[in-house]
């Protein structure tokens, strides 16, 4: 099975790092193939930016995303820019305080997490991306929890490793809270729409 993912947000949020960490977890610790492509446009701090990841059980030849199965959006600009390309039935993961999907999510399964707010509560908003990755790990089940835990060290600044790992775990718990055995994605979508 082949899964295409786009991580998006604004420059400075660690969006490229998100693609890198999930790719590394899949490729090095989950025994899958994972190809990440960096986009080299005029993106800069504050403007929409993204990273593309293709994950597969088999060798990946064509290395680029075509239409994502999963879109992670951490800013409204990024959401507006990339929402048009997703597949029907795709998963949409958003930072619920920064992205208002409006009524364009009919065919998507949407999962929302206040990643930046949680990060601020934990003392540093720079870990919002790791909170999103914890949440991503819980709701998509694309990558194993253990692989992600192994992939984070070496992928974030050493002095912020503990904080990043804590953020990751918080995001994972939050995601588990939504998808837990009781809830189905559709349920989560309704909650996102009503929020």
């Amino acid at each position: 099975m082949l899964t295409e993912i786009r991580f998006s947000g604004f420059g400075g949020q660690g969006i490229i790092r998100c693609g890198y960490i999930v790719g590394k977890a899949c490729a090095l610790f989950d025994n899958k193939y994972a190809t990440m492509a960096q986009s080299f446009g005029p993106e800069a701090r504050g403007s929409a930016c993204s990273s593309e990841l293709v994950v597969s059980d088999e060798r990946i030849f064509y290395p680029y995303m075509t239409r994502p199965h999963i879109l992670v959006a951490m800013s409204q600009d990024a959401f507006d820019k990339f929402i048009g390309e997703v597949r029907d039935g795709a998963l949409l993961l958003i930072d619920e305080d920064l992205v208002k999907p409006g009524n364009r999510i009919i065919k998507l399964k949407t999962f929302a997490v206040p990643a930046t707010r949680i990060a601020e509560e934990m003392g540093n908003k720079v870990i919002a991306n790791l909170i999103m990755l914890g949440f991503f790990t819980a709701v998509t089940e694309l990558v194993s929890l253990e692989a992600m835990r192994q992939a984070v060290p070496g992928s974030v600044p050493e002095r912020f490793l503990d904080l990043n790992l804590k953020g990751f775990e918080r995001g994972y718990e939050f995601g588990g809270g939504i998808t837990g055995k009781m809830a189905k994605p559709e349920k989560a979508m309704e909650s996102a729409v009503s929020s």
Binding site: A34, A37, I60
Partner: peptide, 10 residues
């Protein structure tokens, strides 16, 4: 080429 240079893989 730029593609091979900037793809990240194992």
């Amino acid at each position: 080429d730029e593609c091979v240079g900037h793809l990240t893989e194992k």
